[in-house]
Write a protein that binds this DNA or RNA. Structure first.
Length: 517
DNA sequence: TCTGGGGTCCTAGGACCC
DNA sequence: TCTGGGGTCCTAGGACCC
């Protein structure tokens, strides 16, 4: 084990929620909950203000609403988070080429491999503090940093540092620090393993270490037992590895209401297969094993897979395999979730093509057509419709997105400028007009079909240098439509649409709103 | 109003091959 | 005539992580 705490673990604080607060001045200091807003949604991230009420990740949004009804509820804006994440990861790479991202908001960095390896714990600390300050400046977001001589301890340290802090674990102090912690603190020990260990009277890391490797292997199996024992005794030699190639790509949808119609189920599988291939192609990969995932009405989940003779990125091949797999699955009783994935990924090369067209067999073989280079990067695609997959009664047809305005979504108005959707329903949409660098803005309620209102890309968190003047306040603005959501608004500059415009009743009958007050 | 979506890794059994 | 001993691939399921 290295003598200096030169492995750094970075974890952005309540990342999605903090990014939303940074982006939306009116939400700063308020409870913000980011996650799925449908009837089956779960919380992805809750701001610290919301955590006070007991809201946490993975909780159902419904429960969060009971605990914290006054919070702002927002759908995730991954394009913004990716944008911020790229800035963060780039700054980490300035510390060392060995950067291992774990997710959009988390990464390990091996400072020992960098241009200025710390020679002491104090130097490591100084590097970490400089990093936190630089990140705050670049993104306006706070981060927590852990420094230690191993990955596990660096992560443990950043956990202790939260929020907005830094903790260094001095080499040599590892075991005494770990000893009293619950086994759940060890990476790889989840609810099931913790329960296993509890039944054997093992609750703390110290008890796990005392149990000995043989006993842990007996309880948990070879690989898991060995690894838990090593981690419990503070041994962790796992290197920081940059750029690991992905091994699978998958997409899945949970439906607001269980699907019963077999034809609809099949149509959804076809749609998912298409989305999966879009992502596969955007990544420049191909895959050999197609996986279908089905979660039934009772939450029981099964997977079926089929391995082709060679890797493919042909939508028809993946679609047909997925549909074949579905044919072998009983869906009576209803389907809650469907997923399609591809594994056994390869970089698609000419040789792969030949291999695939190789010797006779029964496998479905089609030479994948020329791949258009035009990268429609799946994840960053605008996706203004964002129709919840299950949007009740949505025919599932192509342009089915009737849920046009989602809470949290960025918009631009021809008169009022940039803003975000606070709520919508009953043919109206409530927009707060503000930008990351503006003062908290005001809310206006508009018609859902206001022709001057359109979806927009997320603005950067930090005002671009020499950027435009803050749109909304710079120019004379006609009188607002409203304060609170009142009568169906009809604006001054707003063309009165013909009677009963498309009021899109299918868009969440209950209406939805980002914040109640 | 229970339980998202995207991944990784491990285990275990059977097929198949030498 | 009653049963070897690997190794690898495929499939299915489950734990875990963010």
């Amino acid at each position: 084990m290295r003598p200096v705490p030169s492995i750094l673990h970075l974890d952005m604080d309540a990342f999605y929620a903090s990014a939303e607060q940074a982006s939306k001045p009116s939400l700063r200091g308020k409870a913000v909950i980011v996650g799925g807003l449908g009837p089956r949604g779960v919380v992805a991230t809750a701001s610290y203000e919301a955590r006070v009420f007991g809201v946490h990740s993975a909780m159902s949004t419904a429960q969060a609403r009971r605990l914290c009804p006054h919070a702002a509820y927002l759908t995730p804006r991954f394009s913004l988070y990716r944008q911020v994440s790229e800035v963060v990861m780039q700054m980490l790479r300035e510390l060392s080429p060995l950067v291992e991202p774990l997710s959009l908001d988390e990464a390990f960095v091996d400072l020992a491999a960098g241009p200025a390896p710390p020679a002491s714990a104090a130097e490591a600390r100084a590097t970490g503090e400089r990093l936190r300050a630089a990140l705050l400046e670049a993104t306006t977001l706070t981060a927590s940093v852990g420094l230690a001589a191993s990955k596990m301890l660096a992560k443990t340290a950043s956990e202790q540092a939260k929020p907005d802090g830094l903790v260094v674990i001095e080499p040599g102090t590892e075991r005494e620090l770990l000893a009293p912690m619950p086994v759940r603190a060890l990476p790889g020990v989840g609810p099931a393993t913790a329960e296993q260990l509890r039944r054997s009277g093992i609750h703390t890391v110290a008890e796990a270490a005392e149990a000995g490797e043989a006993e842990l292997v007996r309880l948990l199996g070879k690989a898991h037992g060995t690894s838990v024992h090593a981690l419990a005794t503070g041994q962790d030699d796992r290197p920081v590895v940059a750029e690991r190639e992905g091994k699978s790509i998958s997409v899945e949808d949970t439906f607001d209401v269980d699907l019963h119609d077999r034809t609809r189920v099949r149509a959804e599988v076809v749609r998912l297969a298409g989305r999966c291939v879009d992502r596969l192609r955007a990544a420049g990969r191909s895959g050999r094993t197609v996986v279908l995932k089905v979660r039934r009405y009772d939450f029981s989940t099964l997977t079926r897979s089929e391995t082709l003779r060679g890797p493919t990125d042909d939508p028809a091949v993946v679609r047909e395999a997925a549909v074949r797999l579905l044919d072998g699955v009983d869906t009576t009783g209803g389907v809650r979730l469907l997923g399609v994935g591809v594994s056994g990924l390869a970089d698609f090369t000419q040789e792969d093509l030949f291999a695939q067209a190789g010797p006779a067999g029964t496998g479905p073989v089609t030479a994948a057509g020329s791949r258009e280079a035009g990268g429609e990067e799946a994840g960053t695609r605008p996706d203004p419709s964002g129709a919840a997959p299950g949007a009740v009664g949505a025919p599932g047809g192509p342009g089915a997105g009737e849920r046009k305005w989602r809470p949290g979504q960025d918009v631009r108005h021809g008169v009022y400028g940039a803003g975000w959707v606070q709520g919508s329903g009953l043919g109206r949409v409530t927009v707060r007009f503000e930008q990351p660098w503006s003062a908290p803005g005001r809310v206006r309620t508009l018609r859902g079909d206001d022709p001057l209102l359109e979806p927009a890309d997320p603005p950067p968190l930090v005002r671009p240098a020499g950027g435009q003047p803050p749109g909304p306040v710079a120019r004379p603005v006609p009188p607002p439509l409203s304060g609170p959501p009142p009568e169906p608004p009809t604006g001054p500059g707003e063309p009165r649409p013909a009677a009963g415009g498309p009021s899109s009743p299918s868009s969440s009958p209950s209406g939805s709103s980002a914040s109640s007050p």
